[in-house]
Amino acid sequence: MTKQIIKMTVNGEVQEVIAEPRELLIYVLREKLGMTGPHVGCETSHCGACTVDIDGKSVKSCTMFAAQAQGAEITTIEGLGSPDALHVLQESFKEHHGLQCGYCTPGMITRAHRLLEENPDPTEEDVRIGMAGNICRCTGYQNIVKSILSAAAEMNASKEAAQ
């Protein structure tokens, strides 16, 4: 079937890839663009490990064809922070033991980032409802929720300090 050139902005850089229409976005990101942060957990739209941010929406990239992302702006965990300059959420997950094996973490943090963009001052319940699309086999969620609430508080404090 006709291969297509797909042009999208990934973590601020314009990328062009050639893909068959049936290629799922997660594989194009991981295998063609080297963005191996988003993981394949279930491949059946249930776990959220493959979550990326597309035009301001948290999306399970195993449930989207790359062709649908033609023209889109995508942010993966690689675009949120780097080993030398961790994102506040990454620091917070590290600090509060928000991860054990770490497999779910890129999806968790990418989703949490969008949640805090939409609702900078969430309650614990808001976090639990907002994170319901991400599954973790290790932590029991308690420390994930704590990490996100703590990151929110820190982001709000630095916003206030800047004003």
Binding site: G48, T51, K57, V59
Partner: peptide, 12 residues
Amino acid sequence: SLQIADPQVRYM
């Protein structure tokens, strides 16, 4: 709508 699926599914 809030009882359908999860946040990621509801964005799409």
